[in-house]
Every structure is written in C-alpha cells, then in structure tokens.
Design a protein around this nucleic acid. Sequence first.
DNA 1: GACGATACGGACCGCCGGTCCGCTTGGCAA
DNA 2: TTGCCAAGCGGACCGGCGGTCCGTATCGTC
Lengths: 195, 195
Amino acid sequence: MPERRSRKDAVRNREAVLAAADALFSRRESPEDVTMADVAAAAGVGKGTLFRAFGDRAGLLRALYAARLASMREAVESGPPPLGPATPPRERVPALLDAVLCFKLDNRPLALALEGSGNGSPYRAEHYAWWHGLLRTVLEQIPGLAEPGFTAHALLAATRADLVEHLAGKECLSRQQLRAQLKEFSVRALSSASR
Amino acid sequence: MPERRSRKDAVRNREAVLAAADALFSRRESPEDVTMADVAAAAGVGKGTLFRAFGDRAGLLRALYAARLASMREAVESGPPPLGPATPPRERVPALLDAVLCFKLDNRPLALALEGSGNGSPYRAEHYAWWHGLLRTVLEQIPGLAEPGFTAHALLAATRADLVEHLAGKECLSRQQLRAQLKEFSVRALSSASR
DNA sequence: GACGATACGGACCGCCGGTCCGCTTGGCAA
DNA sequence: TTGCCAAGCGGACCGGCGGTCCGTATCGTC
C-alpha cells in the first residue's frame, strides 16, 4: 500500500485554498456570504480544483477547522496542566470547556459556518467526537457522577457556536464574563457528585 | 388603527398551508427536503400565496412551531404543577426542561428545521426568548444561584434539536433514558446552590 | 351590478453548491 | 532531451431552491 503521493502543484493549490478560505472567513462577518466561488477566486484557482481537493463545502470547513484546532489538540493530549492529562479531573473539565469556548470566540465565523452548515448535524463531525470522547473519559474519573456521556454532551452544548455568538453579540457579554459564567456553570454541574 | 381584517379566502389558504406543511414535516424524514414548492403544491396553492402569507421559509416554520407550542405554553403559564406557576422552582426547572425535551422529541423534523434554518440563529426566535425568559425568572427564585441568565441558556442548550436527534437516532437512546438523563443533569446543575 | 382593493398563482429570476470535460502540466522512463 | 500519459486544472454549465412579479381572478361593499 504505497500511499499514493499527490502531485506537488496539487498540494500547493490545496494550501492556497486553505489560506484563502482562512482569510475570507476571518474577514467577512457572516459565514453565509463566503461562497465556494469566492474562495476559489481568492485562491486564484478554479472551482473544480477546490472541489477536487475538499469534496464539498463541509469538507473545506472541516479541513480548516482541523488545521486551526491542531495546536490545541496537542496541548490537550500532551501539554502541561491545566489542559494536559496530568490535571485532576475536577479541574480539567472546566479548563477543557474554557479552551473550547476561547477557541470558538477566536474563530467565530468559522465555527458558526461549520456548526450551521445546513445538511449534516455538527454531531457527526469527527472533531466533535474527539471532544466528546475526551470529556467523557475525564468525567468518568469523577466518582459518583452518573451518565458521563450525556453530561459531556450537555456541557459541550453550552459552548455551541451560535449561542456564543448570541451572548457575545446580542447580549454584549465580554470574553471575561462569558468565561467566568461558563466556569461557574461547569463547576456547579460537577459539584454535587460524591462530595 | 382599525386592525385591517384579512379576506376570508386568505385565512382559508393560510390554514391550508399550515396544515399541509404540518403534514409534510411530520412525514418526510429530513426537513431539508421539504421545499416551499412542495408545501404550496400540497396545500393546493401558488407559491406567491405561500410567501405572501408567511414572508419566507423561516416565517412559515415559526408559525408552525408556535401553533404546535400553544397548548404547552398555556400549560406552563396557567396550568397545574409540575409545569404551572404554582410549582416550587427546584421542581419546576426540571419539569420545564422535560417538557421542552418531549416537545422536541414529538416534533423532531420541525424543530430541526427551525433551529437549523441556515440564516438566522435560533436565538433570535421569539419562542426561544420566551423559554429563556421564563426559565431565567424561575432560576432567579432559587437562592444562591449565580448567573441565572447564562444558566438558563446552558440548560436549554442541552435540549437542542440536533443534539436530541443525535442522541435518539445515532446513539439509540430511548425517550425514557433521555428524559432521565436530562433530569439528572438539570437537578445536578442546581443542587449545590444554597443547600 | 359595478368597481376598487385584495389576494392568487405560476412563470420567472438570481444565486449557489456541485459536476463535467477538453486542455495543461508534472513526473517518469527510455 | 524527448515523449508519453496519468493527474490535475478551470470555468462553463447544470439542477434546484428561495424568493419576486405582475396579469388575472375574487372578495366584499355601495
């Protein structure tokens, strides 16, 4: 299985598209009005190339998301506390949620585009499965906490991109306030278990 | 301001559309493949009539949703415990969330369509504002519970239509399991406050 | 019965995600 | 260096959707 190599113009174009899309989603306010044609044009590439490289719109979004998420994934999987695996569960859960929140705040249009992409639910994306699996295993280490699977879903739901957008935009909460309130909530959701 | 009456063929058509849409969203599995043209055809009405009556797709969905929600609204605002206003806050919160959950389970395609309607976030819809306002005022009556506004959002987020869909569909949780887990979660989220 | 306001309906529009296919280019072998 | 062909390119094209427009039909009133 020799793992067929891509031609190098293909990888160059792939990078160009990724960079262009990254820039567009950062600049434009609403993710809705970044079209595939826009991205292709901004990357100096034909639409065919774009779709060949990423399959469809959701594929592009996922690739972008994954790229931006990479550093945090590493920090979570093998970094120092409070995010890394050496942290005691009761502290790590709020830290993880805080990280998710901050990530979504820093990547609002992209997160919005990905979660809101009409067709498939956000729950099928592999990055969600990763977050959920991780959070669940951490929750499982807290004695007396029933239903870690559901709890993980429910806690992550509090960081949904459109909710964050609503709170930060319409209700004018600052980053600090949001983080504090989410922390408060997550701690409370864990506090009664096996005290 | 004499509150201009509608012509009666107009109201008849409006009802027909509502009924047709109701049926379509119940029958078809994915809300995505119920188009406006489908609804118009099923109602025996032109597209122009449909759009005149409801403005746009989101308007139709909201109208449908509101109609189905009416009975529950009444039960919440002036019904008997555990949903009605006479219930003590600590019991009413889980009851309210359970009601939301059951409603979404009973109206999966519609809820999915409304929350997932690409353009505007679900948080701008007036029915969400109503749920949130209600839940917040109930939470405010629980002493020692900080940030009732955020808590209300976070708890409601655990009942998001696509999450419910995922849990009921992909993870194969039964109605009973879902309700039990949500109840467990909501109780825990309240439990530590001023015991 | 007549007449203005209101509503009807379906042809039509613009847009967007996604496909297709004739042309170009990279990479390998002779 | 040359020749060859698979891999890749790109933009014209397509199907379908939400939404609009306007000539026609209907309502309701005088």
